[in-house]
Design a protein around this nucleic acid. Structure first.
Length: 493
RNA sequence: GGCAUUGUGGCCGAGUGGCUAGGCAGAGCUCUGCAAAAGCUUGUACAGCGGUUCGAAUCCGCUCGAUGCCUCCA
């Protein structure tokens, strides 16, 4: 039997503003769409947090036994710098600045994106479609929306008619806005805008002669509006109505609102059952954003080459740090917070590494079955990874007590404990059990083991001058010896 | 200005109307030749002011603050 039949999952639906029991449209199968990156520069850590949240959600669905089709797009065209007449494609702008082909920009940053996600141990999505690969689909949708009277063509561009749509639909239902308020709050009349109303948005933009990214269409050469690609690709791969649409909080308005409008105008049905929004990662209390320069690149964290942090942190420690906050909460990045997470991560892994050697007896002081359900309860409550991690540390406490001989565990409970910990730590949270990458070298390990043996001999002979010399000089090299009951181990910093 | 979210102990960060979050740091202890490492124990909290309630950090109102969106953004 699949796990999902016995675990009642609740998710926070941004559309209703409530936690709802999760029931997929088709039993046992889930369609999930997440707005991916615009590949015009290196993916920064804030971007990663959103994708990591959905990677965790994807992993938990799979763990529960669902068949999941996870679509995460790559935006490689059609992303306007602004909505003004001279709106320029982000990719094209970057290409112009760097004097390369637009698709060269796309290729470079798509590769970077994949490299970074791999370091963070992401699972690849089921489908990763690109906007440029779906121009035809987008044009078809525009034709359909025009035919249904919710869009108008002007000077080779096509705009979605928001006031018209709002007459029979509810534009603003996702972000809690009312069209009347938005019109009332329009600051100034946009200068000579060809749009009928400031709330209207582009479905298709005419390409000026100097514009290099362009495709032929019934309205002349041009390029698609940003919101359209997600509607085209989600509809194509997941259908007119699907289970989950995710993305960053900042996409809620206007991007996701426009997606709803396009899909409803076109298909006449509510496109998404559950809207999930991941919250922002901040740094120094401010949102990370490419446009403001307040951001840090993942590689700068892994290498330690940055002006914000005191040392390098591994991808899995950063992942652990992010998993310690709920995905709907704002998380602030700081050196202290990362250091604390690193310590906690190491403590967790030490416990995991000692699991196999736990001695078993005929009775258990640790109710593993009840503890396991508490872990599921945490995840079932809108993917509450911080609470899950708190429960993991409860298990750590028991493991240490058993190790010290203060508690006992049976063979079967031990097996269940190992299975459950592995499932949550590695399958669901996606953490990796890596000591230090530097310590992997066999030669180094051999040399240090030899020195440990020499030190032990010195200590046995009460030659503490020699033993301390070995210890202190290794420490000076960043190799720390750790004396334990079962002998001495070491770690490299 | 409008809409939304939010304000928890030294730091990070969960949370339910009454019952321990958890991690890090701090303190004490155990272990140790001395340390380190590791383990155990442990304190300080719910922005402010009112209200509802037998009882609120948790519900309501107001004040103050923070953040996000309203233009591209994960």
């Amino acid at each position: 039997m699949q796990l999902y039949k016995s675990q009642a999952l609740k998710v926070y639906n941004s559309l209703s503003g409530k936690k709802e029991i999760f029931e997929p449209i088709n039993e046992g199968a889930i369609g999930m769409y997440v707005c991916g990156p615009t590949v015009y520069s290196n993916v920064h850590l804030g971007n990663c947090r959103t994708f990591m949240s959905f990677d965790m959600i994807f992993r938990y669905f799979k763990h529960l036994g669902y068949k999941v089709r996870y679509v995460r797009n790559i935006t490689d065209a059609g992303h306007l710098e602004n909505d003004a007449e001279d709106g320029e494609d982000k990719i094209a702008k970057k290409a112009r600045l760097e004097l390369i082909e637009p698709m060269e920009v796309v290729q470079r940053y798509t590769v970077d994106f994949h490299n970074i996600l791999q370091k963070f141990n992401f699972l690849p999505p089921s489908i990763e479609p690109t906007a440029t690969g779906h121009i035809i689909e987008q044009i078809e949708i525009i034709k359909d929306i025009l035919k249904k009277g919710y869009a108008y063509e002007i000077n080779g561009s096509v705009y979605f008619n928001v006031p018209k749509f709002n007459e029979s639909h509810n534009y603003g239902k996702l972000s809690g806005r009312k069209l009347e308020d938005m019109i009332a709050n329009t600051r100034e009349l946009a200068a000579q805008d060809e749009k009928h109303s400031p709330q209207d948005f582009a479905l298709w933009k005419k390409a000026e002669p100097q514009h290099i990214m362009r495709w032929p269409s019934p309205w002349g050469d041009g390029f698609p509006g940003w919101h359209l690609e997600c509607t085209a690709m989600s509809t194509k791969y997941l259908g007119e109505s699907f289970d989950i649409h995710g993305g960053g909080m900042d996409l809620k308005f206007p991007h996701h609102e426009c997606e709803i409008a396009q899909a409803e105008a076109c298909n006449g049905v509510e496109p998404v059952k559950y809207w999930l929004h991941a919250n922002m990662l901040t740094m120094n209390g401010k949102k990370m954003a490419k446009s403001t320069g307040n951001n840090i690149l993942p590689d700068e964290i892994f290498s330690g080459e940055n002006s914000i942090l005191s040392k390098a942190f591994s991808p899995t420690v950063v992942r652990f740090f992010m998993m310690q906050a709920h995905y709907t909460s704002i998380l602030d990045l700081s050196n202290d917070a990362l250091l604390a997470s690193e310590k906690g991560y190491q403590k967790l892994m030490e416990a995991v590494n000692s699991l196999e050697n736990l001695e078993t007896t005929s009775s258990s002081d640790f109710n593993v079955e009840a503890w396991k359900q508490k872990c599921y309860d945490a995840m079932n409550d809108d993917f509450n990874t911080p609470t899950l991690i708190a429960h993991l540390f409860e298990a750590v406490k028991h493991i240490n007590a058993i190790k010290e001989g203060n508690e006992t565990i049976t063979q079967s409970d031990k097996a269940l404990l190992i299975e459950t910990l592995n499932a949550f730590i590695f399958d669901v949270l996606g953490l990796e059990n890596k000591n230090d990458a530097n310590a992997d070298s066999d030669k180094l390990s051999g040399v240090v083991t030899m020195l440990i043996q020499l030190r032990k001999e010195a200590r046995d002979n009460k030659d503490f001058a020699t033993s301390d010399k070995i210890r202190d000089q290794l420490a000076a090299l960043g190799i720390q010896l750790k004396d334990g009951k079962e002998g001495t181990t070491f770690s490299v910093s």
